[in-house]
Amino acid sequence: MSESLIFHFDVDGEDFTSAGQASVQVKKNLRRLGISPEIIRQVSIAMYEGEINMVIHAHGGSADVVVNEDKIEIILADKGPGIADIELAMQEGYSTAPDSVRSLGFGAGMGLPNMKRYTDEMTIESKVGEGTTIKMVVKL
């Protein structure tokens, strides 16, 4: 069993143009590891959605991708406003994104549902006023 690999990224807040950079970088690294294209796509979509969420709602945060022999974990942590009702936030089409963001084509309320769809496990820990940590697992 080899040691797990950790890739750490800081996600810049309020900058849509840089959102998605971490997911592109992770994609490159997973290709180097020889991970299958389907898994790479799952991880990069989940990460991309997570990055966008942190930019829209939380002024950025951090993303850690941990690659183990049997799974890939993605941990997204921010110190944003927190999610008041997680169940509601998980509903497709529900969004609290401001109009300014929606006019850019984001905030369709598909972020969290997509993250769940493309990963095998997803847990959300959130406290209003303190921040949110999302852990996702994609099995290899």
């Binding site: 080899s2 040691e3 690999l5 590891l33 020889g34 690659v67 022999e69």
Partner: peptide, 9 residues
């Protein structure tokens, strides 16, 4: 895969 992981590290 294990070898790739080791090389990447």
């Amino acid at each position: 895969f294990s070898e790739s992981m080791r090389m990447m590290a």
